[in-house]
Simulated assay, not measured.
Amino acid sequence: MGDNAGRRDRRGQIGRLGEDVAADYVGRLGWRILARNWRTRYGELDLIAADGTTLVVVEVKTRASRTFADPAAAVTPQKLRTMRLVTRQWLAEQGEFWPVIRFDIVAIQLDIADPEDLERATLSHHTGIVE
């Protein structure tokens, strides 16, 4: 149990670091962050942001290993379906109409030796991901 708990804690820490990097990045793009880690029983949306009149739902994938060449490769068609479902739930609770809704992936590769050194992190932004 202890080893699994430690791995989960590290994975959570890595995920939070990546989400912070991604949130800073979209903020620098001039996007307005509407929600972070929005959850339902069906899933979670990492970042929901407004790029002008476009709603952008951002899946953040963070790695501190070389499991995938690009962490975005971990986003499966099932994950994209879940993102659409949960986005519909989020939209149902909002009073605003969005003429354009886009799904993006922000992939963060942290330094393997020192994941907390965010200066060494690399980021790739995949825009308009579809199934």
Rank of each mutant, 00 (worst) to 15 (best):
L110A: 01
R11H: 08
G43E: 11
E93I: 04
Y25W: 04
L55N: 05
V21C: 01
L29S: 07
Q94R: 12
K79E: 13
D70V: 11
E59T: 15
R81C: 09
E131T: 15
Y42I: 10
M83G: 10
V58N: 14
N4T: 07
N4W: 00
R7N: 03
S124K: 15
D46Q: 06
P77K: 10
T127S: 07
A23L: 06
G12R: 06
T82S: 12
P115F: 06
S124F: 02
A72M: 11
A69T: 09
L45N: 03
P99V: 06
D3M: 11
V130E: 15
L110W: 02
E93T: 13
L110C: 00
A22N: 03
I105K: 06
R39Q: 13
G43K: 07
K61N: 09
T53R: 06
Q94H: 05
G27P: 00
V100F: 09
A49E: 13
E131N: 15
E59Y: 11
V26Q: 05
G12F: 01
D117R: 03
A5Q: 05
L123H: 07
R36Q: 10
V58D: 09
R81S: 14
E93Q: 14
D111F: 02
L110T: 02
V21F: 00
A107D: 07
A5D: 08
D24G: 05
V106M: 08
K61Y: 07
G15R: 05
R120P: 00
V56F: 04
F68G: 01
V130Y: 07
P77H: 10
Q78G: 10
G6I: 01
P71M: 08
R88C: 12
R81N: 10
L80V: 14
R88H: 10
R66D: 13
R36L: 13
I105C: 12
R81P: 09
R102C: 03
R32E: 14
Q109W: 00
A35G: 08
L17M: 09
I108F: 01
Y25K: 02
D111Q: 01
L47K: 08
W38V: 04
E96N: 09
R28H: 01
Q13A: 05
L91Y: 04
V60Y: 12
